[in-house]
Design a protein around this nucleic acid. Structure first.
Lengths: 116, 116
DNA sequence: CAAATATATATAAGTATCTTATATATAAAC
DNA sequence: GTTTATATATAAGATACTTATATATATTTG
């Protein structure tokens, strides 16, 4: 599994990306999908997930809709119209950042001249 | 510039990667090279850099060699034989993590079936 | 049928990492 | 002569996670 430290700051944009692409999801579903997509590399714990979702809701970036399924409560989260542009921004930032990280693994760091 | 939150946990493996590829470097040099490689996207501040270097030294992963150049002190850091395998491990972890992150930007998250 | 596992949300205490601010000092550029 | 670049250092503060704990139902396994 990925070193936990590497996850810091990634979880929020990852969650926003999932909600953005797939529409309404509930918390447990999000953890499972992250695990599946990352082939077990990323484990999104509940202790991390719910505080993030609650904060996003407080900020008006996501909204909730409760539903009782099989006697269990589910809380679906979806991106609000207001939160849409901010979500896209965060997602773009993450994508850009991943591109930047990749440069560090290119020969000579993608630089034209050697500084060795 | 990249959102600061995204950097958390990345700085240590990035520093190790630079030392591993380029050999001995001094702190200021590291900050400049990170800025150049990332085209200004990643700014490694001194407040982050030096505590990381000092901790790596304490752990025996890097070693130092002082040199006075132009009346200014330079402290060169390099990976110790003992720290070599651990450095490679951390670097491989980061590279693997970047690959995992990329999956989140593939169509349907690289999954064969749609769960929408 | 009992126990374990899966489903589902929630919060609080603790850790670690980084940001920001501050300090010191020399050299070069304008 | 003032600003910018070079060079290292540390302390206070913010924050994002991890770990632990709590609650409750449904399903599977033995």
């Amino acid at each position: 599994m990925a070193s936990n430290d590497l996850l810091k700051g990634m979880l929020k944009p990852i969650i926003l990306k999932l909600l953005f692409e797939k529409g309404p999801m509930y918390g447990y579903e999000i953890t499972q999908l992250v695990k599946e997509i990352s082939a077990g590399e990323i484990e999104l714990t509940f202790g991390a997930l719910y505080p993030i979702l609650h904060k996003l809701e407080q900020e008006g970036i996501v909204q909730t809709e409760s539903e009782v399924i099989n006697n269990r409560n589910r809380i679906y989260y979806s991106i609000t119209p207001k939160g849409n542009s901010l979500a896209q921004e965060k997602i773009a930032e993450l994508e850009e950042f991943v591109k930047t990280l990749k440069i560090f693994f290119k020969p000579n760091f993608g630089l034209k001249f050697s500084y060795a």
